[in-house]
Amino acid sequence: MDSLLVSPGDVVVTDFGIYQHWSFVSDAVCSKGKPMLISATKRNGTVKEETWDIVTQGKNTYITKVQQIKPIYEVLKTARSQIGKWTYSVESKNCEHFVKWASGLEVSSTQVVNTTAGLIAGAALVGVVAENPKFVHFVGGALLVGGIFLALTRASEKAAVE
Rank of each mutant, 00 (worst) to 15 (best):
Y73K: 08
L37Y: 04
Q82G: 01
V47E: 11
I63N: 11
S3L: 11
T78S: 14
I18V: 14
S31W: 06
S92A: 04
Y19Q: 09
S92T: 11
K85W: 09
W52T: 14
T56H: 08
Q67V: 15
D2H: 12
C30A: 14
T46S: 15
E49M: 12
T46V: 07
W101Y: 14
A155P: 13
G9Y: 01
K158I: 01
A79E: 05
I72Q: 12
T153I: 10
V25L: 05
V113N: 13
V6A: 05
G141R: 11
D15V: 01
C95K: 06
V66P: 11
I38R: 01
G141S: 06
V99T: 11
V12T: 00
C30S: 14
A102P: 12
H21T: 06
S92P: 00
V129R: 05
A151N: 08
L76K: 04
D27P: 06
S23Q: 00
G104W: 06
N114T: 08
P71F: 09
F24K: 04
S3E: 00
N44I: 00
S7V: 02
A40H: 01
Q20D: 06
G33F: 07
V66D: 07
V13S: 04
V107D: 02
C95H: 01
G17Y: 00
D53H: 06
A159F: 00
L37R: 04
R154S: 02
A123S: 08
T64E: 08
N60A: 14
T51C: 14
P35H: 10
K93M: 04
K48S: 12
H137A: 10
Q20N: 13
